[in-house]
Nucleic acid binder design. Structure first.
Lengths: 142, 142
DNA sequence: ATCTTTGCAAACTTTTTGCACCAAT
DNA sequence: ATTGGTGCAAAAAGTTTGCAAAGAT
């Protein structure tokens, strides 16, 4: 699970000619420290504990840039906000549509399906980019 | 592909004690006629061709009721609005994240994955409730 | 007559954008 | 000095809600 450090990410950005600002440092730090599905709002809150002037819209813009550079991914878990995580930390999500619980899956589980879909529809699945929705053990009994 | 007729759906509703109004008739008619991923807005537009006074919020409320009764499903295709379709017309969606093209899949394709996930995580996948995101043949070459 | 449903307007949530100022290179 | 990035406020986009009036039973 090659967990990229903040320093490494910043080096990558610098290499790409991206400017390293307080806001970007803070967003990266937040992403590195949480290690799993956070919303833009979550990140803003975390970041604003130290630097209250950093605006939510800056967080969105930073996440957008980081995504373009391949450093983060975002996933729509179904309802509400999208969640973001480091691309290095790629995984599947199983989301219970009743209690909203999230289960992480090893990313290989969907490989067979991805191959089938490629063979039959010439379509490349990007499985880390969506959540698998359903009912968890506790909720499915009703 | 047991395509339920409007009349049959209306009979079902009546049986459940749901009142049959102009708006509900119109929404059902729209769903029956389009047969594939329409947004609430699409339905409102279709419906308003005949009955301009039917409001978007009524469409939302009607869709919500129909969903509770098991007559329609809605799916989040990733970005933007959710799309609705008749539950009888259940299928998977493959959505190209680049050109937004939608490919319908037979609903059986994901069954193996659903069984694996059930066996290993005691989680019941509801595969028709989310889209599979990726890149279509035309877009993946870039 | 009753009680659900509707139309409307307004709120709400999440995300995006325009613009003048600021700061990293 | 340049030019990209930021803060702010305001707009978008999608969906939900409160309420009084209308309509189905």
């Amino acid at each position: 699970m090659a967990n990229e450090s903040a320093a490494k990410i910043i080096a990558t950005l610098r290499q790409q000619g991206v400017r390293i600002t307080t806001a970007r440092r803070a967003v990266i730090a937040a992403l590195v420290h949480t290690d799993g599905h956070v919303t833009a709002e979550d990140i803003a809150t975390a970041v604003q504990a130290d630097a209250p002037e950093i605006h939510l819209s800056t967080v969105y813009r930073t996440l957008e840039s980081l995504e373009e550079l391949g450093v983060v991914d975002h996933v729509h878990l179904g309802h509400g906000s999208a969640v973001y995580h480091l691309a290095a930390n790629r995984h599947q999500h199983l989301v219970c549509e009743n209690c909203k619980k999230v289960i992480h899956l090893p990313h290989g589980l969907v490989d067979k399906l991805a191959r089938d879909i490629d063979a039959r529809y010439h379509f490349t699945l990007r499985p880390h980019h969506f959540a698998l929705i359903g009912l968890c053990e506790d909720c499915r009994e009703t």
